[in-house]
């Protein structure tokens, strides 16, 4: 939104203001993405790459970032001193979502169940084209609806207590009509013996129905939920083809899942920036 303002012709006075504004945008962008590319910034802010390089140099002197070949990565000294627990949770979800995004190909029909991670996936799907998303989660539906190149189908049903998810026989019946390439199901617990559980029986019912029609079944689970049991049992992890989690999952679970021949993906995120 601020980006659009950048393309308006400006006087010299505005330009000085804009230089300040530009650094603010770059800082925000960095905080959000942890990395930037010079050419991306230059097209986003509609200024030359030389200008962006100058801005990055200034920000590097200020200690905000480290310049790399063709871009910059965030230095996080201030952030690491005072970690915000809430911000951390959403960062984990974001990272899990970016692993999931690597599994989605243009033209796929995917199903997203409700939850933070699925919400993050929905936001990133804008990077793909021609995706049809089936969901029972209203925030996902509104997010996809904003993306011109992708479609969304919201399954009907009873509105759950959180006011955002739809469950019940209606949604299950609707779901059965679709063929899904990939199912992304967010689960709340993976306990001993790799027993999967979710928060409610309605959710379990929906995931079971979705698994029947899905080619590839991918479970999403936060690392801290391994070793925990949620309210309703869904079945063995063997049901899934892939599991995605964040690197805080314990070594015992990594080992168990590997030995049981299930693909375990972690959002290990060891490469800063992109090549």
């Amino acid at each position: 939104m601020i980006v659009k303002d950048a393309s308006i012709p400006y006087s010299y006075e505005q330009f000085v203001m804009f230089a300040v504004e530009r650094t603010r945008i770059i800082k925000n962008f960095l905080r959000e993405n942890r990395q930037v590319e010079v050419h991306a910034l230059s097209s986003m802010l509609n200024v030359s790459e030389v200008t962006i390089r100058r801005d990055l140099e200034k920000l590097e002197r200020d200690g905000v970032l480290t310049r790399t070949h063709g871009g910059a990565v965030l230095r996080e000294i201030e952030e690491s001193v005072q970690p915000e627990p809430t911000a951390d949770v959403s960062r984990d979800s974001r990272e899990i979502a970016s692993v999931a995004l690597n599994m989605i190909e243009d033209g796929d029909v995917i199903m997203l169940t409700g939850g933070d991670i699925c919400d993050c996936i929905a936001r990133r799907i804008v990077e793909r084209n021609g995706i049809t998303v089936l969901t029972n989660y209203i925030p996902v539906a509104t997010e996809i609806a904003r993306q011109p190149s992708n479609r969304v189908v919201l399954l009907g049903g009873d509105v759950a207590d959180d006011g955002r998810s739809l469950y019940g026989s209606l949604s299950v019946a609707n779901l059965r009509r679709f063929h899904v390439n990939r199912l992304f199901a967010e689960v709340e617990g993976i306990g001993e013996n790799l027993e999967v559980s979710v928060a409610s029986h309605e959710k379990a019912e929906l995931i079971e129905a979705a698994m029947e029609s899905a080619e590839e079944k991918i479970f999403l689970c936060m690392g801290e939920n391994f070793g925990r049991n949620a309210f309703f049992r869904l079945g063995s992890l063997k049901l899934a083809d892939k599991v995605i989690t964040n690197p805080s999952i314990s070594d015992e679970y990594k080992q168990q899942i590997f030995v049981r021949n299930i693909q375990l993906h972690t959002s290990i995120n060891v490469f800063e920036g992109r090549v």
Partner: peptide, 11 residues
Amino acid sequence: DAAAKVDIYNS
């Protein structure tokens, strides 16, 4: 070990 393998593959 297997756990470290999983980490290496994901990396």
